[in-house]
Amino acid sequence: MSADLASILHNNVRTKLARGQVVSSMTARLVRGVEIVRIAKTAGFDSIYVDLEHSSFNFDTTGQICMMALEAGLAPFVRVPTNRPEYIARALDGGAMGVIAPDVRTAEEARAIVNAAKFPPLGQRGVSGGLPHLQFRTFPAAQAFAAMNEATMVIVQFESAEAVRNAEEIMAVEGVDLALIGTNDLMADMDVAGQFDHPKVREAYERTIAACLKHGKHAGVGGLSSRQDLVGDFVRMGARYVSTGTDLAFLLGAATQRARQVAELQP
């Protein structure tokens, strides 16, 4: 990668993960304006990810948030509604530096996601000019493809017992960078919904983190915003990406606290 391209395509999340540092991420699913990026940046997050699986956002909104994040120096990721190639391509072409693929259960599914997210020879992502990641500039195709493939991250979500059982095979797939455990969906699938302290949860994290470390990949924690003690445990175990919660949850939590403070005042 040329020095010019390396500077343009700097992915702070990939850099911190390579150093073994913990990465923090905020999820956008409520605020449709680019202000959410400035809030995330000012708050000190490393990344913002737009949740298309559980929001009514469209790709125009998603692209605007991603482009603002690129300018702000935050790594923008997009969780696609399903793992269809056209969703993955549109999210990435719109400015995302990586795709978060929900409910991946097998290595075959993971390979299909990599195929959609990466340019040849690593995948079959369609060629599009004027990418916001490249500041809408033109570079030689071979050079741009290699640089984009290196910068673009593929994050697969483990949300089922089947995914955990197949962790070794999934994380061995070339092009997969990180396994993000969706703890709430995982607990529901394992029939222990809401039981954060259940041994099955810890076992799932242990097995996933071990598979990631074995293959030189990274593990992430999701759905544990109410249990910072467990987040700390899993980070010490080897997880390095922490999805901290949504803009909706942060706003509602702070608003509820303030309303309660006033309600408890005694005249």
Rank of each mutant, 00 (worst) to 15 (best):
Ser7Pro: 01
His10Ala: 10
Lys16Trp: 00
Ala18Lys: 14
Gly20Phe: 00
Val22Lys: 05
Met26Arg: 09
Arg29Gly: 13
Glu35Lys: 08
Ile36Gln: 01
Arg38Tyr: 10
Lys41Gln: 14
Leu52Asn: 11
Leu52Pro: 00
His54Met: 02
Ser55Val: 10
Phe59His: 12
Gln64Ser: 13
Met67Leu: 11
Met67Val: 12
Val78Trp: 00
Asn83Leu: 03
Met97Lys: 08
Pro102Thr: 08
Glu108Thr: 10
Ala110Met: 04
Arg111Val: 09
Pro121Ala: 04
Leu122Pro: 01
Leu122Lys: 14
Leu134Tyr: 05
Gln135Ile: 02
Ala142Glu: 14
Gln143Met: 13
Phe145Pro: 06
Phe145Trp: 08
Ala147Leu: 09
Val154Trp: 03
Phe158Ile: 03
Glu162Ala: 11
Ala163Phe: 06
Ala163Ile: 08
Val164Arg: 06
Asn166Ala: 00
Met171His: 04
Leu178Asn: 04
Thr183Asn: 02
Leu186Phe: 13
Met187Cys: 13
Met190Gln: 11
Val192Ser: 06
Gln195Arg: 14
Asp197Met: 08
Lys200Phe: 01
Thr208Trp: 02
Ala219His: 04
Gly220Pro: 10
Val221Arg: 01
Gln228Glu: 10
Val231Ser: 05
Val231Leu: 02
Arg236His: 09
Arg240Pro: 07
Tyr241Gln: 06
Thr244Phe: 08
Gly245Pro: 05
Leu248Trp: 06
Leu251Gln: 10
Ala254Lys: 13
Gln266Asn: 14
